[in-house]
Structure formats: structure tokens, C-alpha cells
Write a protein that binds this DNA or RNA. Structure first.
Lengths: 407, 407
DNA sequence: TCTATTTGTTGTCTAGGGCAACATAATGCA
DNA sequence: TGCATTATGTTGCCCTAGACAACAAATAGA
């Protein structure tokens, strides 16, 4: 029904001129097609409530700029003249980068959300920032050289397993990598000649879920992700990513919920991340390593009382955290990803009961708790999304690059 | 329900036409003058980045509608032709209603933020909703009859010490009054013939602080209020009130931060509200009743070890809650109101240290913790703000009423 | 008094969305 | 098969609202 994450125009406090109007409407149309991959022009007119002729004009401009494609032969859906389908041009691409503890993944992702090419390189343990930047630049260059000549490059979006100042493109405290303050965005930009956007991995995954996953159609989402390194999160408020002043918002894993002295990865005691750990589950199940599906299966199969107790404890704690989020954000949906979805599968009834018990009457009623949808490509798609953000916000003003023009 | 403060244009997902443009710019100008009480036309042009002639035109339309006033004799500020001052017309009024446990306050508040008239009636303990509505209607009517004939009435804004569905104007769970689900907005509207907006008291106070108090100039605010009935809160994200799906968001007091079994007013254990209580302070200080200033003085004067310990415990818990908020919202400022500001005064150093200790590196750095500013009129001003919201959002389309036309 | 500076005012220009009329392409029924 | 119906695309014109430029007005300072 409602479309989400549509472009908020510029939610700033300056006056708007006719140009802003045009930018907004172009942005709106492009964003709508982007989210739905393909739409008819009449759908666009209906959803935007703009005049047919206006939509035609907007679509024409976006097509001219190479952002949209119109099908020649429209297929009929019912009575009346069939409408042309408009789809996003997947030749408009962004480079999505995922930095993890010991590897880097880079992908070219089309505006239609399709992964066009993907490479991966192992960085080794605790690599230096400049080494990682080098590897990223190499991977980007090699993918770039293989792109279609007509491609248009929007930029690079990078997912970071730690804190990021999104305003300045600076890293802070990536404990998993042992990095302190690093000017990552400008470093990557210098080596590639492309604009770079950074984002926290939780935030980025949340965006991906909103646009293409279990969060579609929702405007108020709490997303909690459990990975090997800890628990991250992201929050969508009124269709918009919650960023905070510097982009540090959404650290749901470091929410303190207990008097326990056990510390999380950031050294904070009694937090959700400190108490609900993937490792503990693996230990109890005598698993060395497992992906989330294997973990879920192992949990469901296990007859061990110890495992049972552990899971109940973790579920109860997760329930408390969810309740806190519900009281604070009054969201439409809470999405659980990573091993937290294994906990959901283990005993969703208990989890929901616990979450409800801690929520206030009003807020908890309509809340839906769900598993996230997107799998391995999640972060890459999300990273591409933040790279596309500028283009989507101002389709006419955003400068796209060719695959050839290096630097 | 509606937005207050600066009008973020319509952050909606439909296309914009020229009319929307006009609405936005009118809204912007009116909101700016409203926030600053008085501004010169050149200031307006500078701040909105609109053309001088456009600002003139907008101001002229708003003046014609009786919303703004222009001074005849501009006073010079420097070189150049002096600019006309534009101020908000305080004859445009809203009725602000504050419902508390045993009394109702109603005020007429001008668009300039001045309280024009104010009445109060004691309701007795646990009055029925319809009784309270009756009292409100009477107070509104009596104030209304005394208003200047040229007044323009925007509507009624009501502050509720409990949960409110702002979308539907329905109350839920006002434990302090023993009320369940009540269609309060339509009840009041039926008796007064005026549009009614409801808001949670925490939310409303937060809005008032943002617009006229310690939150001026900030876009990301966490507000925590400690009253006799418990702890409420409000959050401003990117200049906008955090509302959630149904308007239940911002219940910071019910955030669970401990394993303690002590329950808060909603029956939730281990929450901030359960553990940090005004009552406990009064008890320890052997005070029967005291306002916040008296409380602060008593705290600072007290030499009792028991009091000292209690305060330290409360401060530490409040610090944890603040840290959680900082990690979740990455705000620019955290405002403490009510008896929480007494705790701040008691030992701000300890409180800040505790809050910092629980915050993540990035988010905690620039956070400022402050006492809220506005006093007794806070809630009334805030309630008026939510009544003005519709007018500020669409100055040309909003229907104002005369004092005479009853019903 | 004259100049520089800033602001207000007026008339004109123009971009861009609305609208109506018409063209087009499908369905459905006689 | 032909014609009515319906939904969509296209075209030309209109209108509004903001920009802009030129000029007037009001101040300070020399």
C-alpha cells in the first residue's frame, strides 16, 4: 500500500522554488520505480497523484538521462489502452563494499537491485586500513574494467562492522578490526575517483530490508541483527533511517538491560550484546562453526537441557530488548536477523510473550516480530542503496561517471 | 498527529504541485516567525533563501489572513534601509489543556507563545472521563467568552499523563486516572465545536522545550521528565517529534535497565521509572511534598548518608538510561526535567561520568546533558503547540474559528 | 549633500504542473 | 465485424508562483 523510504524531499528548513519542485518529483518517480523495479506509467500517476502528462514528462527526462527504461510493447492488463511499463536501468550501478573481519567483498549492483559482478579478497587478520583500501580499490578497478561501456556509475557504498560518522566519512572504533579513527571515505575516494558513502552494517542491512526484504511496506521498523561480532541494529522512523547527529544512532546491541557484569565487545556490561551471544549457542551445541540455518537446525534438533535453558535465557533477554524498543519507538514491525532469527525459530511463542510482557499496552498491540528476509546479499544490496541515495534524491543534479574515466 | 516546529515541507510520498510549493513556503515563513516571535523580512529572506519579493508576497498573504503583523515604523539596525519587523499575531489563539491527577488547567495561548488567560478546576480523585470533558468544556467556554472579538481560534491541544493514540485521538491506559480506552478527542470536540489534538505529556513538554526552552536550536533531542506519577519522555529526531506508528513512542521511563523485580506504574519490573522515584527521595528527606526547587535545595542541604546513597543509586541508574538513549539516538542534547534535574544538580559530575561510561565512543562524545528550562507553563505552551500544528503546516488551508461561533 | 548600502516594490519572465481535447489501443457485446 | 466503452498516451494551452532586474526608499557616514 504505502510506499516507503520515498525521498522525503529535502527535509530542510529552506524555502522551495520551482526547481526544488522538479527535483522532488523526479526523485519521487525514480525512487518509486527503483523500489518496485518496474511500474506502469499509470501506476506512477496514481501513486504520485501527479497528472498523467506530468508523469510522462518526468519519465521522459529520467529516460533521457539513462536512468529509466520504457518498454516498447506494453502488455495489456485489462480494458483500455495498455500502459507502458517503466523500469529502472540496471546499467546504472554502484559499487557495494562489505568489510568484515578477515575479508572484503565488492560487488557491482545495478539500480534494479541486481548484483552484476562480485569479487572477494581475503585480507588476513587485523589488516591496516590502507591495506584494505588498496584491496578495495583493486577489486573496484577490476570490476569496473569489466562493466558494460554504457554503464553509469553512481559511487561506492561501504558497510562497516563498527561505528561510522556518516557526515564526515570517518570511522571510529571498529573494535573487530582494531581500528581507531580512520578517514576511510576520503582514502577510498582518492584511490578510485568515486564518491564514497559509509554506513554501519546494521544500519545498512536495515535499509536493505526496508527496500527489498521483510520491511517492505513498513514505515517504522526496528531491525536487530545478531552476527559473530555482536549485535547491531538499525531503526527506520517514518520511512527514514534513524541516524542521529553524527550517524551513530541505532546501536541497539549496546542497550543495557541487566545488572550483569558480563561485558560486550565495547566493554559495556549487562547489554544485550553481552548477554545474548552466538558463541554461547555454538558452544552449548558443540558446534565449531555454522551458518544461521545450520544453527537453527541444530537448535531444533538438540535435546540437551543445557541448550534449552540457554536458549530460554537468551530469548527472555531478547524479549526484554524488543520490549524496550517497542516502548521507545512504537514501530510497526521488529525484524530479527542473523542468529537472532534462530532464536525466533527456537521458540517464537516464548519470545513474543516476553516481548509483549515488557511492552506498554498501546505500543505492543500491533507490533509484529518477524524474521528478516534477505540472505547473503543483504549487506551488499544495502551498501549499494546508500551509494544510490544521492542519485535518488536528485536525479538531475547527481553526477554519474563512466566506467572508463579513471580518476 | 501533526508536526510542530519547522515544517519539513511535507515529507510525504506524493508528488508536489505549485500549490504544495506555496503551502510549504507559507508554512515555512509562519513557522519561522512563530519560533522567533519576531523577525525582520530580510532575516526571513536570508533564512529561507527565498527572494525578497517572494518573502514580501508570503508575508503579505499571511498578514491578510490575520496571522502575522508588520510594524509600521521599522527601527534601523545599521546601514541601509531598515527592514520591517514581522511578528506573529497573538490574537490567534489555541486552548491548551492539561489534565493531571486531580485537576484540569485550561489556558488560552497566543501564537506568540503568550498565555492570555488561564483557569483551573479541581476534579477530585479519579473523575470519570465525561466529567473531565464537561469541566474542560466549561473552562474553555468561559475563557472563550472573554476573548477579544477579533481573536482567531486554532483549536484545542490536550496534554495527557498517559498513553495516547495521536492518530485517532483515543486514550489508552491512563493508569493515574484509572482510565482505559477513551475517545477523548471526539468527546471534547463534540462539546466545544473545536478541533482537538491530544498528546502525551512527555511528548508535549519535549516539543515545548525544543521550541522555546533548553532545546532551542537542536535537531536531535532526548527529553526525560520525572514527575510524581513517573518518568516520561520525548524524542526529537531530525527536528521532528518521534511518534511511532500510533504516537506511543518515546516511553523512555519504561525502558528496562535492571534485573530488579520492582515494578513501575505500568507493572513493568526493573525499568527506569520503577527504580528512580521522586517518592523515594521525598521519603528519605522526610519531606511531605515539595516542588522541584525545594527538592533540590533539600538534597543539597542534606547530610544524611542514607540520602547520599539513595541519590547515588538513582544517579547511576539515570546515567545508564541516558547512556542507552545516547547509543540508540546519538542525540545532540539530553534534557532532564522535573525531579531528574534535581538529581542533576545533586551531582552532575557523577551523572555525566556514568552516562559517558555506558555510551559508545562515537555517540557519547558530543552529547550534552542539560536541565530543561521551562517551568510551570511548559505543558500548556506545548499543548498549544500541538493545537497550532495544523495551522503552521498549512496556513492558508487551516480553518480558524471566531470566539463567538459556539459549535 | 552625496555616496554606499541595504531593503522594499513593481513589472516582467519563465518553468513546470494542471487541464482539456483528442488520439490510441485494448475489451466486450451485438 | 463493427461499434461502444474504457483506460491510457499526447499535445497545446493556461496559470501560478518564484526569480530577477530595475528602481525607489531609507539609513549611515563622509
Amino acid at each position: 500500500m504505502n510506499e516507503i523510504a520515498l525521498p522525503t524531499l529535502r527535509a530542510n528548513r529552506v524555502g522551495s522554488s520551482r526547481e526544488d519542485l522538479r527535483i522532488h518529483n523526479l526523485s519521487l518517480v525514480l525512487s518509486l520505480v527503483h523500489k518496485n523495479v518496474s511500474l506502469s506509467r499509470s501506476d506512477l500517476a496514481a501513486q504520485t497523484r501527479l497528472n498523467r502528462s506530468t508523469v510522462s514528462d518526468l519519465v521522459a527526462e529520467l529516460s533521457e538521462r539513462g536512468l529509466l527504461l520504457e518498454t516498447e510493447r506494453p502488455q495489456a492488463t485489462g480494458v483500455g489502452r495498455p500502459s507502458h511499463m517503466v523500469s529502472v536501468n540496471n546499467r546504472v550501478v554502484a559499487f557495494a563494499v562489505e568489510i568484515t573481519t578477515y575479508a572484503v567483498r565488492v560487488a557491482a549492483v545495478g539500480l534494479a537491485g541486481k548484483v552484476i559482478d562480485r569479487r572477494r579478497a581475503v585480507t588476513g587478520l587485523l589488516p591496516s586500513p590502507s591495506r584494505v583500501v588498496e584491496i578495495i580499490a583493486e577489486l573496484v578497478a577490476s570490476i569496473r574494467s569489466g562493466l558494460d561501456k554504457n554503464s553509469l556509475i553512481a559511487g561506492i557504498g561501504v558497510s562497516i562492522p563498527g561505528q561510522v560518522n556518516e557526515q564526515t566519512g570517518t570511522l571510529r572504533m571498529v573494535t573487530m578490526l582494531g581500528w581507531g579513527e580512520v578517514e576511510l571515505a576520503s582514502m577510498i575516494s582518492a584511490k578510485t575517483g568515486l564518491p564514497v558513502s559509509l554506513g554501519n552494517d546494521g544500519t545498512i542491512s536495515c535499509v536493505a530490508e526496508r527496500d527489498f526484504g521483510a520491511g517492505r511496506g513498513f514505515n517504522d521498523i526496528v531491525y536487530i541483527f545478531g552476527g559473530a561480532g555482536g549485535i547491531g541494529g538499525g531503526v527506520i522512523v517514518g520511512g527514514q533511517m534513524l541516524r542521529g547527529t553524527a550517524g551513530f544512532a541505532g546501536e541497539l546491541g549496546h542497550m543495557r538491560i541487566s545488572d550483569s557484569k558480563i561485558e560486550d565487545s565495547a566493554g559495556l556490561p549487562g547489554t544485550l550484546e553481552a548477554l545474548v551471544k552466538r558463541e554461547d549457542l555454538l558452544d552449548a551445541l558443540h558446534l565449531d562453526d555454522a551458518d544461521d540455518d545450520e544453527l537453527t537446525r541444530a537448535i531444533l534438533k538438540s535435546k540437551s537441557l543445557r541448550v534449552r535453558k540457554l536458549i530460554e535465557r537468551q530469548i527472555d533477554l531478547l524479549g526484554i530488548a524488543i520490549a524496550n524498543c517497542v516502548n521507545i519507538f512504537n514501530p510497526e514491525v521488529v525484524l530479527l536477523a542473523g542468529f537472532l532469527s534462530s532464536l525466533f525459530d527456537a521458540d517464537d511463542y516464548r519470545l513474543l510473550a516476553k516481548a509483549r510482557a515488557g511492552g506498554l499496552a498501546g505500543a505492543r498491540e500491533r507490533v509484529v516480530v518477524r524474521k528478516a528476509e534477505l540472505g547473503a546479499n543483504l549487506v551488499l544490496v544495502g551498501a549499494a542503496e546508500i551509494a544510490f541515495a544521492g542519485l535518488l534524491a536528485d536525479p538531475a543534479g547527481f553526477k554519474l561517471r563512466s566506467p572508463k574515466s579513471i580518476k
